[in-house]
Design a protein around this nucleic acid. Structure first.
Length: 222
DNA sequence: GCGACAG
DNA sequence: ATCTTGTCGC
């Protein structure tokens, strides 16, 4: 399938995919293989690299990773980020030897203008449970959470709770957690904390960010 | 009508 | 996302 040619077309596809979003059938057992994904961009070309990193939660050890090069074929439009990143993220996930039980995304899930952010989109097309961890506010409003690790406050819009502003480290800026596909907000919150023992962002996201950035740097030399 | 706007 | 030095603090 090729990239949408227009914003209107992308919004139509987004609406179609949203029909397949599952917010009820969620993880029933603790996930063992957790993947983190991220994309790095070149500032002056369409070249990008994506990374998918898998951790075994039972041991806390990194199991495998896949890094792939590619080119973006859709412009950045707030609310349509998935059309930029999902294609190459799917490629990266396909390169993994094992299918992860969960994928943690760098961005939003349902805390999105049309309730279908990157984490929802990737979850639906990959057929995997997902949730999103974003670094900056987007569409929902919130009150500042308490200052200690684990403190959180609801992310809301239109009278709905769309996610949580979660403090993963005491005295550090909080992150914005929202459900993607087949996960609950409670699971997303608990797992984000479990995956962030030392830094603000989940380890799987930090590793994916590092690997994709490093690969892009190498690609730029050739 | 005018800004704001994940990565 | 990316462009970017020093600097404050543990």
């Amino acid at each position: 399938m090729v990239a949408p040619a227009t914003v209107a077309e992308a919004e139509g596809i987004q609406e179609q995919l949203r029909q397949r979003l599952d917010l009820h059938e969620h993880l029933t057992t603790a996930p063992r293989l957790v993947a983190g994904v991220d994309v790095s961009y070149d500032r002056s070309s369409p070249c990008v690299t994506a990374a998918a990193v898998v951790f075994d939660l039972a041991t806390g050890v990194e199991v495998e990773s896949a890094v792939v090069p590619g080119e973006v074929s859709f412009p950045y439009v707030p609310g349509l980020l998935a059309f930029r990143e999902v294609p190459i993220l799917l490629t990266a996930l396909d390169r993994l030897a094992a299918r992860p039980d969960l994928v943690v995304c760098d961005g939003y899930g349902i805390a999105h203008p049309r309730r279908f952010g990157l984490a929802c989109h990737l979850g639906v097309v990959a057929g995997l449970p997902t949730f999103g961890v974003a670094k900056t506010p987007f569409v929902a409003g919130y009150d500042e959470p308490g200052g200690s690790r684990g403190d959180w406050s609801p992310l809301r819009a239109d009278g709905e709770v769309l996610g949580r502003v979660l403090r993963t480290q005491t005295g550090v800026k909080p992150v914005f957690v929202s459900v993607g596909h087949r996960t609950t907000l409670h699971q997303a919150t608990t797992l984000t904390l479990d995956l962030s023992p030392r830094y603000r962002l989940p380890e799987v996201i930090r590793r994916a960010d590092f690997l994709s950035r490093e690969a892009l740097r190498r690609a730029q030399l050739d």
